[in-house]
């Protein structure tokens, strides 16, 4: 295993990936192993708390944030295959800790928050790699998810990683920066608007002629992919980690 400054690295798989998209978590583990990182999965983890926070249920998010810090306290880097969950840990955990009125929780959150990295940030900034040795011979388009783009500011890191994948042909997605309309509980509370936005995103994806739509968040992909599948479009969706783990 590659020594990355003796760092203890943990995977925060996210509740959605744990339950519905385990392939993404498995891909992160295999990818990191290949890059020489010994990654741990602390089983005490549950959810980052974002579904509750973003719906206005701050008290209800406290147990999830407690589970998060008890699972990840003591790790040097917490890697998550989700811009949204990384954003929640970095920008919302302090809010939940404040609401809990527990200064102890606030102290631990101040340690875990800045150590949480979205996958592309960890690969590019911490490991310093853009060529991860992947092979994926397909025509691909990439959707930058809103929280990775605007909450975290991952910039072109995911694209730089994809550009180094052998066999992969990356085609530009029109109106790429525009939200797909998922928005967590928005997808159900404002289903009509969510679907109108998603339908436009699906239209842009189809216009590229790509076989595969890639993004860094399975929540957004579940929404766009659900529409593409209902349309029998023949376009499949894949998490960035799965493309990068392919050989």
């Amino acid at each position: 295993m590659r020594e990355i400054g003796g760092m203890k690295v943990a995977l925060q798989v996210t509740c959605l990936n744990d339950a519905l998209f385990p392939g993404t978590g498995i891909a992160v583990v295999r990818l990191l192993h290949r890059l020489g990182v010994d990654v741990d999965f602390p089983e005490a983890q549950t959810c980052c708390g974002q579904p509750m926070v973003n719906t206005g249920y701050l008290d209800e998010a406290v147990p999830a944030v407690r589970a998060f810090v008890s699972a990840f306290e003591g790790y040097d880097a917490i890697v998550t295959p989700s811009g949204s969950c990384a954003g929640s840990a970095r920008h919302q955990h302090a809010l939940v800790a404040k609401r809990s009125g527990d200064p102890g929780l606030a102290r631990v959150v101040a340690e875990t928050s800045p150590r949480t990295y979205e996958l592309s940030e960890f690969l590019v900034d911490v490991l310093g790699v853009t060529d991860v040795g992947a092979y994926f011979p397909h025509r691909v388009t990439y959707h930058p998810t809103c929280h990775s783009l605007r909450m975290l500011g991952v910039g072109d890191r995911p694209r730089r990683l994809l550009e180094q994948v052998r066999g992969l042909r990356l085609v530009d997605l029109p109106h790429a920066d525009e939200c797909c309309g998922f928005g967590g509980t928005f997808a159900v509370k404002n289903a009509d608007t969510s679907i109108a936005m998603g339908a436009d995103k699906a239209h842009h994806v189809r216009s590229t002629g790509a076989e595969v739509l890639v993004a860094g968040d399975n929540s957004c992909l579940m929404h766009i992919g659900g529409l593409l599948s209902r349309q029998r479009s023949g376009v499949r969706v894949l998490h960035l980690a799965e493309v990068l783990a392919s050989q």
Binding site: P22, I26, A191, I195
Partner: peptide
């Protein structure tokens, strides 16, 4: 939750969760 499936397909559920996979294989 029907508001989801009215216009969107659900993903095919996996045979085991990530958690179960990790427990079975140790990663």
């Amino acid at each position: 939750a029907a508001a989801w499936t009215d216009a969107r397909d659900l993903p095919t559920p996996p045979r085991e969760s990530f958690r179960a996979w990790w427990r079975r294989t140790g990663g």
